[in-house]
Design a protein around this nucleic acid. Sequence first.
DNA 1: CTGAAAGCGCTTACAG
DNA 2: CTGAAAGCGCTTACAG
Lengths: 347, 347
Amino acid sequence: MPAKSKIPKAGEPARAATINDIARLAGVSKKTVSRIINNSPLVRQDTREKVETLMREVGYVPDPLARGLAFRRSFLIGMVYDNPTAQFIVNMQYGALDTLRGSGFELVVHPCDSRSPNYIDSVRRFVQQQKLHGVMLVPRVSEDQALADMLAEIGVRYVRIAAVSLDAPERMVVTHDRDGAAEVADYLQSLGHTDIAMITGPRDYRSSIERSEGFVAALEARGITLPPGRVVEAGYTFESGVAAAETLLGGKKRPTAIFCGNDEMAAGVYRVAMRAGISIPRQLSVVGYDDSPLASRLWPPLTSVRRDTRDTGRISAAMLLLAEGAPRQMASVRPHLIVRDSCQPPG
Amino acid sequence: MPAKSKIPKAGEPARAATINDIARLAGVSKKTVSRIINNSPLVRQDTREKVETLMREVGYVPDPLARGLAFRRSFLIGMVYDNPTAQFIVNMQYGALDTLRGSGFELVVHPCDSRSPNYIDSVRRFVQQQKLHGVMLVPRVSEDQALADMLAEIGVRYVRIAAVSLDAPERMVVTHDRDGAAEVADYLQSLGHTDIAMITGPRDYRSSIERSEGFVAALEARGITLPPGRVVEAGYTFESGVAAAETLLGGKKRPTAIFCGNDEMAAGVYRVAMRAGISIPRQLSVVGYDDSPLASRLWPPLTSVRRDTRDTGRISAAMLLLAEGAPRQMASVRPHLIVRDSCQPPG
DNA sequence: CTGAAAGCGCTTACAG
DNA sequence: CTGAAAGCGCTTACAG
């Protein structure tokens, strides 16, 4: 036994146990303890049990800093995003933490500004300096191929959450926004609407493209065509929704139903309808996307497409924790329509 | 020079520079480089400049894992919270990251369930295992003295964000909710309201106590008394706001104004008023607290008390980064009323 | 299946 | 103001 075992002074909080303490107390080498920590199969079962019991009794937890230094990789998962709604971010975080809890990994959040010219560089610095174990890319940064390429180049594991597959299957969690929009189309058609309009998000958002294309295609399949004037591009914000609604509702002949690319813009439609004295749903049916809390705060409660963001976060984090060699495939999260009171057959 | 300098194979990405590389290239000892990294004054100015230039050229960044191991403390700030609204959490995170960006520190988020019997233990494990540099306690966990005591006992630095001071000044960021509520009282009184009601949050939330006591006291000071029947306790949620509003608006004589402890509950009042055909603000004035995005999505736009949550996050993180010996004092963030269209003089 | 040695990239005493 | 030695708590080859 080396002579340096420190005797803690009385009153001083006992320093936390280390791998050396466990090895000594268990009468094995520290390498064996290390093997147990890392779930190596090269340990006899009885040795493993003896040591694990001891670790539990002593309350030993391996130091992530020391492990990280030796591994050249930390036990941190990074979540990188640009500017989604607060509820979306928080649900994604909750989901990721659901799977990280108890794993020894922690979640480091990293919002960034993808319009900034050097944002990819700044994400690279973040990832490299922290030696992240893996990175979750949330829309819309998840759609940026240059960002993904950079991460691949520096050899860090990542998962992309997006409306469609954009990468190798084991790196994708796909939310199938096209299907959600198609469900809206079917619903509105089934109510009898034929003069339908849509307010889309920005055309450089993949989610926006998928939602609008999916909507148009599903309507076509049911024999309804959306003329160009009935599709207005907005910016996924409340204010842009207001502006788009003014365009759509200010004309001579109003559509009888509007599908909005998200709930924020649907709230904008509500605002304009309220001011113009247009009754929802009697004179105008409205559907949103996201099923945010806002949807049920509005009056009448907004019919909207739910995406299970928390589950998306859970799955994404789980994909990052999978062992290097484990079989991996694309994950899917399916949207579905939540019907509330904002639609009815056209007057 | 030790003989172990590795020659990287061609094609292999050059390994990142270490403190040894910098020391060798600069012709100083690694201790001197370490002093420069840690801003020690015990370095000659020209030495410092020479080495700093070199570090920049090489793109050297000290490894937080190695530093953390040697310091016995990581470069991570933890944010611990229970269940505030999404917007509040996100703004707090943005604020904290505003000050952390470029500092070498990162933000680790840690939501928890303060009703769980062992939550304090689970926070302790989190803090100790990660060897956190500091912890931000967000309401309502910030109000839990047992949690703060635990953190003090294990010797970790923390900051508490709360409606009133609950701890040593250098550990407090105070949001003065009492003042915000008083401003609402003054405003409603100035409009001529005398039959006023309040929907409060849970009585075991400090923010709730401060907002209701502050409101009642300020009304008293202006000669208005709130009878017990005009104060209804709810749970800071939309649904509880609906229930409270039904109580207040279902009676014979309705109040002409309602102050709600947060915007979510104010949305509940809107819902009940809408269903009952009570016009806001013509027949009923409503005020909220938080100035969340919801406030401007509602119709009519809701007058509400703004608290600058992002700034609160900024300040809190800054207090945690202050050097051990730096002079420190209590920080304050002041609320203020944002007047929109949900109030007018009583009919 | 197990172990002794060397190393990950830093900092902390201790000297000078 | 500067440096050589030892150590932080782990893991990775390399032996056996």
